[in-house]
Simulated assay, not measured.
Amino acid sequence: MKVVDQYHKWVEWSDEDQTYVGKCPDLITGIHGDDPVRLYAELCAVVDEVIRHFQATGRMLPRPRVRPMQEVV
């Protein structure tokens, strides 16, 4: 598994901001945009860039802690 795949990322609509918000709380606070598909691609690129920065500077990445919820049947 790639390092980037260990971090949970998602896009959701914000009624308060009237825009889509992309989140990866283990690494960044978030980004926003009008197109959810394009925003997710941008979010993945930003998260990948943050990971490369951590690695290039010798800093330890934070442990991935946010996990998607699993529906219980």
Results as ranks from 00 to 15, higher is better:
M1V: 11
V3E: 12
V3R: 09
V4G: 08
V4Y: 10
D5T: 04
D5W: 00
Q6H: 11
Y7K: 10
H8L: 13
H8Q: 13
W10A: 03
W10E: 14
V11I: 12
E12A: 11
E12M: 04
E12Q: 13
W13M: 05
W13Y: 08
W13T: 06
W13L: 02
W13P: 09
S14F: 10
S14A: 01
S14K: 00
D15F: 07
D15K: 10
E16G: 07
E16Q: 14
E16A: 07
D17F: 01
Q18V: 01
Q18Y: 05
Q18N: 15
T19S: 10
Y20S: 07
Y20E: 00
Y20L: 07
V21F: 00
V21E: 02
G22K: 00
G22H: 09
G22S: 04
K23T: 13
K23M: 14
K23L: 13
K23S: 12
K23C: 04
C24L: 01
C24G: 01
C24S: 06
C24I: 01
P25H: 14
P25Y: 14
D26G: 10
I28D: 06
I28W: 02
T29A: 07
I31Q: 00
H32K: 11
H32I: 00
H32S: 12
G33L: 05
G33S: 03
D34A: 13
P36G: 07
P36I: 04
V37L: 00
R38Q: 15
R38V: 15
L39E: 07
L39G: 03
L39K: 03
L39T: 05
L39D: 07
Y40V: 07
Y40G: 04
Y40D: 02
Y40A: 02
A41H: 07
A41C: 09
A41P: 03
E42A: 11
E42I: 08
E42R: 12
E42P: 05
L43F: 04
L43T: 08
L43G: 05
C44V: 14
C44D: 15
C44E: 15
C44Q: 15
C44M: 12
A45Q: 14
V46Q: 07
V46I: 01
V46N: 00
V46L: 07
V47H: 00
V47F: 00
D48T: 09
D48S: 09
D48E: 13
D48G: 09
E49S: 12
E49H: 12
E49F: 03
E49M: 11
I51T: 12
I51L: 05
I51D: 04
R52T: 10
R52M: 13
R52F: 12
F54Y: 15
F54V: 01
F54C: 08
Q55T: 01
Q55G: 01
A56S: 14
A56H: 05
T57N: 02
R59G: 05
R59N: 11
R59K: 12
M60H: 09
L61M: 03
L61A: 09
P62G: 00
P62F: 03
P62D: 11
R63Y: 13
R63N: 13
R63M: 14
R63A: 11
R65C: 01
V66Q: 15
V66L: 09
R67S: 10
P68S: 05
P68T: 04
M69F: 12
Q70V: 15
E71K: 10
E71Y: 15
V72I: 06
V72Y: 08
V73P: 03
V73K: 06
